[in-house]
């Protein structure tokens, strides 16, 4: 949970509810876990559109749309590489619905923007989705070191945000936020019960690279480095995003303290 003022918490909670309501589909809800909804990305989008002087409804629709795309892409990432020969009936339904849930969330993105008659935003976000899939292919096929893996990961995680931000802000000014996206994605990975297929790929890369690090060690090392870079770059990013960034950094610190206390 993000450390925020009561008012901001309320707003985030309302946004979460709106996204969850949009996603509802009886049979999917019954059979699949609710996809991870990244509060840090939500916070960043809220900040972006909040300062863009857009009507409230448009702000909310944009945020809901982008988060739906994010969840569509994340859901498709959960489809396993090869179907098991001894797959059980439950595993089969899970695999099939995972494919369809991603398609459904992605169709909703198009529907919301079509209702808004915002065809330019449909195109802008579609271009970002294309880029993300190119980056995913690079992660799965071409990446040969953990450093490269995290670099592409940060770029990939930020692609939707940068596409949404480009009409309002010079995207070069948002470069330092790439570490924000790395950190938020690594928090997401920590939240999962088991490694997602993306991070199983990291394990393979470490093995091929003959690294002595385990996946957890590599993640912790990257978290530490990304936090240091982000702290250093805090003053060079648009101030409006510095507040969200501090919250992300503070959250990391709190988690470490908690870990030390518990440890």
């Amino acid at each position: 949970m993000i450390v925020l003022s009561y008012a901001s918490m309320e707003e985030l909670h309302t946004l979460r509810k709106k996204i969850e309501n949009r996603m509802q589909q009886a049979y999917l809800d019954e059979n699949l876990d609710i996809p991870y909804l990244d509060d840090y990305k939500l916070l960043l989008l809220q900040t972006l559109f909040g300062q863009a002087n857009l009507p409230d409804k448009q702000q909310t629709d944009y945020i809901v749309t982008i988060m739906l795309i994010q969840m569509a892409l994340d859901t498709h990432d959960l489809v396993i590489r090869t179907t098991k020969a001894d797959e059980t009936a439950d595993e089969r339904v899970d695999r099939q619905l995972t494919v369809l849930a991603g398609n459904y969330y992605s169709a909703l993105y198009y529907k919301i923007l079509a209702e808004l008659e915002d065809i330019d935003m449909v195109a802008q976000l579609a271009t970002a989705i294309k880029e993300i899939n190119e980056q995913k292919m690079a992660l799965y096929y071409d990446t040969s070191s953990a450093a490269e893996f995290f670099r592409i990961l940060g770029r990939m995680e930020g692609t939707l945000f940068y596409a949404a931000a480009s009409p309002f802000i010079k995207t070069e000014d948002l470069e330092p936020l790439v570490d924000y996206f790395i950190i938020s994605r690594l928090h997401q990975e920590e939240f999962m019960n088991e490694p997602t297929p993306l991070f199983l790929r990291l394990s393979k890369i470490l093995e091929q690279d003959q690294s002595t690090l385990t996946v957890t060690e590599a993640i912790n090392q990257e978290l530490e480095e990304a936090r240091a870079r982000l702290t250093k770059n805090l003053h060079s990013m648009p101030q409006v995003f510095a507040a969200a960034t501090r919250k992300l950094l503070l959250q990391g610190k709190r988690q470490e303290e908690l870990f030390l206390e518990e440890g």
């Binding site: 569509a72 892409l73 498709h76 990432d77 489809v79 396993i80 590489r81 090869t82 179907t83 494919v99 991603g102 398609n103 992605s106 989705i129 294309k130 899939n133 190119e134 995913k136 292919m137 799965y140 297929p197």
Partner: peptide
């Protein structure tokens, strides 16, 4: 499966 998911998303 992965490539099929990404290719489908890309084409869409």
């Amino acid at each position: 499966n992965k490539v099929a998911m990404y290719a489908g998303d890309y084409i869409f």
